[in-house]
């Protein structure tokens, strides 16, 4: 009896070992290096003092958090109806939509982002749309604007949201919807009171995944937003490669990490509440 209980844990061992090696070790190393003084060791908070004393870095952190929350909200709002339609459609429609959703994942994010750079540039198709200046477009089109970054990022993130939400939505029994409709609720009411609440764990985990991907990405913000709209993931990259200031980059990573943990804790709570 005791052995059969241990077996599942044994199956977990490879994944745990991989996590310990590839995730825990570097994270602990990062935490440690952010508070070690450069000469002769000893604990120092100078990296954090520099971080919290700089408008530039605080601005980048604020932008990272704000844009990631907007991107997450938009991705989830767009993904939920797609996932719902897929979960209720005939198998070939479902496959077709799945292909369309997954297709962008098969190209490199750099290539996709360059596509957006062309579309959003001063001569790009998007820049000639009426009302585009309401999104902040100027002489450089949507390039160098936060709206441009959000649009490009949501396209990158959408497949992750759709696939995660789809998994849970497919398991919501259609009979429950039929029961709700039979008892007089219309389509929207059924969606709001039956389907969405039952899918909430999937929506929450989709949001978590999208948020984590969003806050840590720097290629798209860099190519579309440019260096004048710094995000924390981008400043970490520059400070660790160009500046070679790893302890300071580590301090920024700790801040980013703390932010992600807080948001993940909050979304996971949200996912549990309605169950």
């Amino acid at each position: 009896m005791t052995i059969s209980r241990r077996e599942p844990w044994l199956l977990l061992l490879p994944a745990v070992a991989l996590l310990a090696l590839g995730f825990l070790t570097p994270v602990v190393g990062m935490l440690v290096s952010s508070v070690i003084a450069p000469e002769g060791g000893g604990v120092t908070l100078s990296n954090f003092e520099r971080l919290f004393g700089s408008e530039y870095y605080l601005g980048a952190a604020e932008r990272s958090l704000r844009l990631s929350l907007i991107q997450t909200a938009l991705a989830v709002i767009l993904a939920t109806p797609i996932a719902y339609i897929m979960s209720r459609a005939t198998s070939w429609v479902r496959t077709a939509v799945l292909v369309v959703v997954i297709l962008p994942l098969l190209t490199s994010v750099v290539v996709r982002t360059f596509g957006w750079v062309v579309l959003m540039g001063p001569a790009g198709a998007l820049s000639s749309l009426p009302g585009i200046e309401l999104l902040g477009a100027g002489s450089q089109g949507l390039l160098g604007t936060e709206a441009g970054v959000v649009i490009a990022m949501v396209q990158v993130l959408l497949p992750f949201a759709v696939l995660t939400i789809l998994g849970v939505m497919s398991s919501v029994k259609q009979e429950l919807e039929e029961a709700s409709r039979m008892l007089g609720a219309n389509f929207w009411r059924t969606l709001r009171h039956v389907v969405i609440p039952l899918s909430l764990p999937g929506i929450a985990s989709g949001a978590t995944l999208v948020f984590a991907l969003s806050v840590s990405s720097f290629i798209t913000p860099r190519l579309v937003g440019g260096v004048q709209l710094p995000v924390l993931a981008g400043t970490i990259y520059v400070d660790s490669t160009v500046g070679l200031d790893w302890p300071f980059a580590a301090a920024q990573s700790v801040l980013l990490f703390a932010g992600v943990i807080l948001v993940i804790a909050a979304t996971l709570r949200l996912g549990k509440v309605d169950r």
């Binding site: 360059f114 750079v117 062309v118 540039g121 001063p122 001569a123 790009g124 100027g138 002489s139 450089q140 390039l143 160098g144 860099r222 190519l223 440019g226 260096v227 004048q228």
Partner: peptide
């Protein structure tokens, strides 16, 4: 110049190419 929007700021040779090709 950069802050006023009279100049854009590029970071790499690839950005520079995009700037001349697509960003006027």
């Amino acid at each position: 110049l950069a802050a006023s929007g009279d100049a854009i700021v590029v970071a790499s040779s690839a950005d520079l190419q995009a700037a001349f090709a697509q960003r006027d």
